[in-house]
């Protein structure tokens, strides 16, 4: 790859790393507007991270090195996943056939260490959160990879960058309904994987009902900052995938940024108008999303 292209991709990564916490600001501002509140500042997430990075730490006597390594590994996985992500018209820093499998692998590794670090505390609440995370993510995984199979079939490309640019610049004739179904399936995965309503409620106050938040209960200081920042990066990464599936991503930086902002507002609207589903209902939601991606795949099969 040329140096210019590498620099451009690296610039994209740096931009994403800086902008990712802003997404939660937009989501919270949308929710505040819906509720008629003034809400927290847009840049609250940045303040939180900086504050946490400046603190000391308290560790439970039950924990081992797994608990301390967890946040570092989670952050590294999320950061590395950025290298595989095409943003705007910039291709990913590293693009090769099957790179999305690596992206899924990195996110799965991140989850693995989130869950083991939670189990390391010996708290039944954190065990409960890990158990739910394991169950829901196991159901989300096939939906995610099947949706990417639809995109691969539609574009004939086996890398995220190839898919994004072809979806934006040379969309296949009459692929609208297929893309809509796929993007919807990916959106459900996006909500489930990032602990948003209707699967999990980031603002919940009861440990019994949490999934993501409860797994980080015992983490504090820089460790919590790593976990929170990694979660924000993950929100950004999966958001870019949804935006790219709609063909917005590859059209350029502004279209991509606009798509991300619209996505954040959409999440805010979903969270303001919907309640969290009962936990027993979540598998049905995931199976529904799987049906959508399967339907999209069937549609690509019958298309000539």
């Amino acid at each position: 790859m040329e140096t210019g292209l590498i620099l451009s991709s690296a610039g994209g990564i740096a931009g994403a790393a800086l902008a990712a916490p802003l997404l939660s600001g937009v989501i919270n501002r949308t929710k505040a507007v819906f509720a008629g509140r003034r809400g927290q500042p847009l840049l609250q997430a940045y303040h939180d991270i900086i504050k946490l990075l400046g603190k000391g730490a308290v560790y439970s006597r039950t924990t081992t090195w797994v608990f301390r390594a967890g946040p570092v590994i989670q952050f590294s996985c999320a950061a590395l996943a950025l290298a595989l992500l095409p943003m705007g018209s910039r291709p990913a820093l590293l693009a090769f056939p099957g790179d999305f499998i690596c992206l899924a692998g990195l996110l799965a590794l991140m989850r693995f260490f989130l869950m083991t670090a939670a189990l390391d505390t010996g708290s039944s609440f954190e065990g409960m959160g890990a158990s739910r995370e394991a169950a829901f993510s196991a159901l989300a995984e096939p939906v995610f990879l099947l949706s990417l199979a639809v995109l691969a079939r539609l574009t004939g490309a086996l890398s995220l960058s190839g898919m994004a640019s072809r979806l934006a610049l040379h969309p296949a004739e009459g692929s609208g309904p297929v893309l809509a179904l796929t993007a919807l399936a990916l959106f459900v995965v996006f909500l489930a994987e990032n602990a948003r309503v209707p699967v999990d409620d980031p603002n919940t106050h009861l440990e019994l009902t949490m999934i993501h938040e409860v797994m980080a209960l015992d983490h504090g200081g820089p460790d919590l900052a790593f976990i929170q920042y990694a979660a924000q990066l993950k929100l950004w990464i999966m958001g870019i995938l949804v935006v790219n599936a709609l063909g917005l991503g590859g059209r350029g930086g502004w279209a991509c940024a606009g798509g991300m902002a619209a996505l954040a507002v959409l999440i805010g609207i979903v969270e303001s108008t919907m309640a969290r589903l009962r936990l027993l209902r979540v598998p049905q939601l995931m199976i529904g999303a799987g049906a959508l991606s399967l339907l999209a795949l069937l549609l690509t099969l019958v298309r000539p």
């Binding site: 869950m115 083991t116 189990l119 010996g122 065990g127 394991a134 159901l139 099947l146 199979a149 799987g290």
Partner: peptide
Amino acid sequence: GAAAIAAIALIGGLAAACFTRAFGIVFLGQ
């Protein structure tokens, strides 16, 4: 191909649940 993709993804997710359980319960906590 689609069946293989869905199956491997599901197997991977379930295996992660299975082995976080095996490692986490046996080696971690009290």
